[in-house]
Amino acid sequence: MKTIKTLFTLALLLTTLVVQGQDRYLTRTGHIKFFSHAPLEDIEAHNNKVLSIVDLAKGQVAVDMLIKAFEFEKKLMQEHFNENYMESDKHPKSTFKGTFEVPQELKAMIDGTYVVDVKGDLSVHGVTKPLNTKATLKVSGGKLSGDLVFKVKVKDHEIKIPKVVVRNIADEVEVTATFEFEPYK
């Protein structure tokens, strides 16, 4: 009897470890694009070094990126973005931490597309604001990927836009994220 109990406990221990090992998916090369549409110009920038991790057991997600990794077509614009708007030396990172309900099929990594409601906190320019958005998670052949689009009000994160460029920069920028996750050990 004792042996069985021990074996059971051992098995449970192993399962916990193993299962937890497979619940987490990570990417270091996530892509985030932001797009600002204003009367005078459209501005977009891309960051291809976004880190993100998803925990399917707990329904948690986190995103972490360096602001200086955003690339603009015009380097001067990139300099202004870092120096005057995002103040990247003071606030080098932008992060997101959120939770979502995980459908059973997604938990089991069954092929399909799952739309989930993510609730969390977005931190940009040192200011943290709640962000609720829909995200699409896709499972295909054991691989997990995620897509989401949301809008951020520049004013919400205390990013100041001087009057002279008010017609060049939108009040609200559209953020598009694409992640291709790998199992995290």
Binding site: L26, R28, L51, S52, I53, D55, Q60, V61, A62, V63, D64, L66, T95, K97
Partner: peptide
């Protein structure tokens, strides 16, 4: 083990 701390280490 907070996910953000984990990403911070991965960064």
């Amino acid at each position: 083990n907070d996910l953000l701390d984990l990403l911070n280490e991965e960064q």
